[in-house]
């Protein structure tokens, strides 16, 4: 590890630091024992909410219970979570512009591999999105696979054209939250409660929201990787 330029002399602090660590280990082991005791004292059989989910699974529009919980029963969580993602991106962007790239050529292996892998990753993301209705998968998994494709493209030196790094990028980022809110508000105006889907076309609505959310999550995570606000001609 490189020492920073104005590191303090360590020798005199050394023994005091060791003492501090030893002292710290005492309350922390007490904490670990207490937490372990608390965990072990829980009943060994606790169905939790799985029976409730199983009972209502039919009207949720999907047959994968986790997707049903994420997009239907606890839609608020997912809605606000998309907001958190945007907030984090806002924080990153407000802290400065993305760094300039130093080396322009990524090398043959990375370039060819990214050409091969990126279409495959997009395909996998689409598959995960579609399969999320009835098997493990869904918007978050698909979105993060999409983001991985974006990171690979960024590493290979690909940048979004200047034309798209302004409004179109922002539209892509808020698409998930926007579609989610739009569906929620339209359904509320149509006579239901907020985020209450009519069972007859809940599946289609969930797929619509998930598709938009996947796109936004992928774009947002790739933009987070860039580590700053994209200036002229940057991003994915």
């Amino acid at each position: 590890m490189k020492k920073s330029n104005n590191a303090k002399p360590i020798t005199e602090n050394d023994s005091r630091q060791a003492q501090f660590r030893l002292l710290l280990a005492v309350p922390l082991s007490a904490l670990a024992v207490g937490l372990g005791y608390a965990v072990l004292s829980l009943p060994s059989q606790a169905p939790g909410l799985s029976d409730h989910v199983a009972a209502k699974l039919e009207i949720s529009g999907v047959s994968n219970p986790v997707t049903a919980v994420l997009l239907n029963f606890r839609g608020y969580d997912t809605l606000l979570e998309l907001g958190v993602l945007l907030l984090a991106l806002l924080g990153v962007w407000s802290l400065g512009a993305a760094p300039k790239r130093r080396e322009p050529s990524p090398g043959l292996v990375l370039e060819l591999l990214s050409r091969l892998l990126v279409p495959l990753l997009i395909l996998v993301a689409g598959y995960l999105l579609w399969v999320g209705g009835h098997a493990p998968g869904g918007a978050f998994q698909a979105g993060s696979v999409l983001a991985t494709a974006g990171v690979l493209l960024l590493l290979a030196g690909w940048r979004l054209d200047t034309r798209f790094s302004g409004l179109p990028l922002r539209l892509a980022l808020v698409a998930g939250l926007g579609v989610f809110l739009l569906v929620a508000v339209v359904l509320m105006l149509a006579g239901g409660h907020l985020l209450e889907y009519p069972p007859s076309f809940a599946g289609a609505l969930i797929l619509l929201i998930e598709a938009a959310a996947t796109f936004s999550i992928g774009t947002a995570l790739a933009a987070l990787f860039l580590g700053g606000r994209p200036e002229k001609g940057s991003h994915r």
């Binding site: 939790g48 989910v53 986790v66 919980v69 029963f73 969580d77 869904g138």
Partner: peptide
């Protein structure tokens, strides 16, 4: 329990 799984994914 799928609720916990959904929370962890979030």
């Amino acid at each position: 329990d799928p609720v916990a799984h959904a929370m962890v994914i979030t």
